[in-house]
């Protein structure tokens, strides 16, 4: 058997234009479902209020009014950014690829002269573009109206935050791709999907700041998993939990995880193509 390697080819301008067209098409696709977007933002906002009240109650009971080092205004900001990031980074995306593998529709993806992982990534970045101007901005605006939120003090925080959210989206995309790709082997990927939802919700900083956990566990999560780089890092960047240099290092960590996870997704995809059985006639 020939060795399987995942190499990242340098894209030319035509390739970049093609991926840009795929991203633009996906942006338009999401823009067609406006009612779904409004419903999702409403739900995000309702849960934002619930989470905010719970975490502020925790902070109220803590010494100095700060929970795990987050004062009240930063804690409220953390919650509302998390609500915005949920739909932007898209942790709980429907298992579209897994469903295409199960039904055999994935054959249409494999018959195109593009790398499936990169084509799906381009599409996800198109979705990200639409979500960034709707599902990220609006919950934060709702939070700002109802609560006293923290405004970043350093100008560099804003570009760092944008880069961090983009990296979080790429890392999350690659994680989801890997979870979905289990369908190549299992056909029914509901087990891995449920596992992903449970783990990513609890350990990405989505449900609560990871600083609430014991320090050794938090350190292990940062060093050994991509999970904190999905929600915790971009949220911490915006609430300026650490000095700018430390946050820049965190974003660099996101870039590294994005590269590692994308390479893993490409490797798995190539493995899958060697043994894939397109379902149905």
């Amino acid at each position: 058997m020939r060795p399987v390697t995942a190499t990242v080819a340098r894209p030319d301008m035509t390739t970049l234009r093609m991926y840009a067209a795929v991203a633009a098409a996906e942006f338009r696709r999401y823009a067609t479902y406006r009612q779904a977007m409004v419903a999702a933002m409403f739900t995000n906002s309702v849960f934002g209020f619930l989470r905010c009240f719970v975490l502020l109650a925790v902070a109220g009971g803590a010494a100095g009014g700060a929970a795990a080092g987050y004062p009240r205004d930063r804690l409220a900001t953390y919650v509302w950014i998390g609500q915005g990031l949920l739909g932007t980074v898209n942790i709980w995306s429907p298992p579209e690829l897994a469903e295409r593998i199960r039904t055999g529709d994935v054959v249409a993806d494999l018959l195109r002269p593009v790398n499936p992982v990169m084509a799906y990534l381009a599409a996800d970045l198109g979705r990200f573009g639409y979500a960034a101007v709707t599902r990220l901005v609006i919950p934060i605006a709702v939070g700002a109206v109802a609560f006293d939120l923290y405004a970043p003090a350093h100008p560099v925080t804003y570009p760092l935050f944008v880069g961090s959210v983009l990296c979080a989206t790429v890392v999350c995309f690659a994680c989801r791709y890997l979870v979905n790709a289990t369908a190549y082997w299992l056909l029914d990927s509901r087990g891995p999907q449920i596992g992903w939802v449970a783990v990513s919700s609890a350990l990405s900083g989505m449900a609560f700041p990871l600083a609430f956990l014991p320090a050794p566990l938090t350190t292990a999560l940062y060093l050994a998993t991509p999970l904190p780089y999905l929600i915790q890092v971009p949220a911490d960047v915006l609430v300026e939990r650490h000095p700018p240099a430390t946050m820049a290092a965190m974003v660099a960590g996101q870039v590294a995880w994005a590269a590692v996870m994308l390479a893993a997704a490409r490797l798995v995809q190539r493995r899958a193509e060697r043994r894939v059985v397109i379902q149905g006639g």
């Binding site: 234009r17 067209a21 696709r29 529709d105 249409a108």
Partner: peptide, 19 residues
């Protein structure tokens, strides 16, 4: 189907031009 389900047919063709 190899077309994009939610997009108009014309846009699917344009996308395929790039692909």
């Amino acid at each position: 189907s190899q077309l994009w389900w939610d997009l108009p047919l014309r846009e699917s063709f344009e996308l395929l031009r790039h692909v």
